[in-house]
Simulated assay, not measured.
Amino acid sequence: MNVIKLRAYAKINLGLDVVGKREDGYHEVRMIMQTINLYDQISMKKISDSGIYLKTNLHYLPVNEKNLVYRAAKLLKDEFNIKHGVDIKLDKRIPVAAGMAGGSSDAAAALVGMNKLFNLGLSKKELMERGVKLGADVPYCILRGTALSEGIGEILTPLAPAPECYVLIAKPGINVSTKFVYGNLNITEIKEHPDIDGMIDNISNGDLYGLTNKLGNVLETVTIKEHPVIDTIKQEMIKYGALGSIMSGSGPTVFGLFDNKKKAQEAFYHMKGLDIAKQVHLTDFFNQKRG
């Protein structure tokens, strides 16, 4: 197997609650994670020398230890004392610094790719255990689908596939620091917490309308205050027929869920025509079929 091609899928948070802060400074969360059909493409090739070579289509991304893809490849290379090197090409499509786990998903794909390329024989669970060393979202990006995420994001419980719908993604032309958002979150001031358990019930019942009524993200209390354009995008999506619209992760990406393809397409073209979003995508959930 000389070249492996992989897709690194983006995620959104259908629900994001922060339930506490640990002594080490990390926040305890309860989140419902959902993979969507928006992805980066990664190709990996075994080479004769021992180096790790990374190229990307975005000139401003690092191609050394500062990139999670590089670190993922090095992690397994070091652990298994792999003598051969690897040539990696990363084609970025997921918005960068957007609250969609693009970097984590790339790292997850790189771990999967290294496992296949060098026949390491690691199970999905074993890859997830290594992924958490690179970032809290990496294990989920290996698991994919619909899942409850707890702890700092590393405790994962797979859920039934979320009901199918159309997903409109809009990222304004700003970047948000996850560290800043969590650092400025005052848990005692949060007035409304999303009903995560209720959302899980709606998902298991295939109830899209019940689910969209409960969408919620407590980090909006910080990010929207800094960047009101996020709320403007949410309101535009609702105006154009979204059943619900919230910010994903720490932002600034906003998504809206639609039950009607025509409405979703109209909202997509409307959003493309406004100057409030720099990147706009229309997609759907990535899931295994409901049994």
Results as ranks from 00 to 15, higher is better:
Lys272His: 10
Met237Ile: 05
Gly173Lys: 11
Ser245Lys: 10
Thr223Trp: 00
Glu192Gly: 00
Asn205Cys: 10
Glu226Asp: 09
Thr212Ser: 13
Thr221Trp: 04
Thr188Pro: 01
Gln235Asn: 15
Glu192Tyr: 10
Met199Phe: 03
Asp231Leu: 11
Gln235His: 14
Ile203Thr: 05
Gly273Trp: 06
Val254Lys: 04
Thr178Tyr: 09
Lys179Trp: 05
Glu220Leu: 02
Ile187Thr: 11
Tyr182Lys: 05
Met247Pro: 02
Phe258Thr: 10
Val176Thr: 13
Tyr269Pro: 01
Gly251Ser: 09
Lys234Ala: 02
Gln235Trp: 08
Gln265Tyr: 15
Phe255Ile: 11
Glu192Ile: 14
Lys239Gln: 14
Leu168Asp: 12
Met271Pro: 00
Asn260Met: 06
Asn205Thr: 03
Ile224Thr: 14
Thr178Asp: 13
Asp197Asn: 14
Ser248Ala: 04
Asp195Ala: 14
Gly256Val: 08
Ser245Val: 12
Met271Val: 00
Tyr269Gln: 06
Ile233Leu: 06
Tyr269Asp: 15
Phe258Asp: 06
Asn175Met: 11
Val176Cys: 12
Gly249Tyr: 01
Lys179Asn: 12
Phe255Cys: 11
Gly216Val: 02
Gly251Trp: 03
Met247Leu: 01
Thr232Glu: 15
Val218Glu: 05
Gln235Glu: 14
Val218Asn: 09
Lys263Val: 07
Asp207Asn: 15
Val254Ala: 07
Val218Asp: 06
Lys171Trp: 09
Leu185Lys: 02
Leu274Arg: 13
Phe180Pro: 04
His193Ala: 08
Ile276Ala: 05
Lys263Asn: 14
Glu266Ser: 12
Asn202Arg: 08
Gly249Val: 13
Asp259Lys: 13
Val218Ala: 07
Lys225Phe: 03
Ile238Ser: 13
Asn217Asp: 12
Leu168Glu: 02
Thr212Tyr: 07
Thr178Asn: 12
Lys278Trp: 00
Gly198Tyr: 13
Lys234Trp: 01
Ser177Ile: 10
Met237Phe: 09
Leu185Arg: 05
Lys278Asp: 05
Thr178Trp: 07
Gln235Ser: 14
Ala242Thr: 12
Gly206Glu: 04
Asp195Gln: 11
Gly198Cys: 13
Ile238Val: 15
Asp231Asn: 15
Leu219Cys: 01
Glu220Asn: 07
Leu257His: 06
Val167Phe: 01
Gly216Met: 03
Leu168Pro: 13
Asn213Thr: 07
Asn186Pro: 01
Ser248Phe: 02
Asn260Ile: 04
Tyr166Met: 09
Gly249Phe: 02
Asn202His: 13
Thr253Pro: 10
Gly206Lys: 05
Lys239Tyr: 14
Ile200Gly: 00
Gly244Glu: 08
Gly256Arg: 07
Thr232His: 12
Tyr240His: 15
His193Arg: 14
Asn260Ala: 10
Asn175Tyr: 11
Gly198Arg: 10
Leu274Gln: 15
Pro252Phe: 11
Gly249Trp: 03
Leu243Arg: 11
Asp197Glu: 15
Val167Arg: 02
Phe258Arg: 08
Asp275Ile: 01
Gly241Lys: 00
Ile224Asp: 05
Thr223Lys: 07
Val222His: 05
Ile174Gly: 03
Ala264Glu: 08
Ile169Ser: 08
Glu164Arg: 12
Ala170Leu: 07
Thr253Val: 04
Pro228Ser: 03
Val167Glu: 05
Asp275Val: 02
